[in-house]
């Protein structure tokens, strides 16, 4: 569990950091942020799909 927690935390840190920087420094912005949001939503979906009632 600890490993998963750290792995997902790093993943989210990277994609959120990219949302703060990529549209400004590498790019376009409209599409990048849209794709970023969809990737974040899918990631949350993967994590929460494993929850047990």
């Amino acid at each position: 569990m600890q490993g998963q927690l750290i792995g997902w935390a790093i993943w989210f840190f990277v994609i959120v950091l990219s949302a703060f920087t990529v549209p400004y420094y590498l790019l376009g912005a409209f599409l990048y942020w849209g794709i970023f949001a969809i990737v974040a939503i899918i990631s949350v979906g993967i994590i929460t799909s494993k929850w047990r009632d």
């Binding site: 997902w8 949302a19 703060f20 974040a40 990631s43 949350v44 929460t48």
Partner: peptide, 14 residues
Amino acid sequence: GFELIYLSGLVLVA
């Protein structure tokens, strides 16, 4: 971008 970064803050709820 500003509002979608806010929306992505919901990753914290995960």
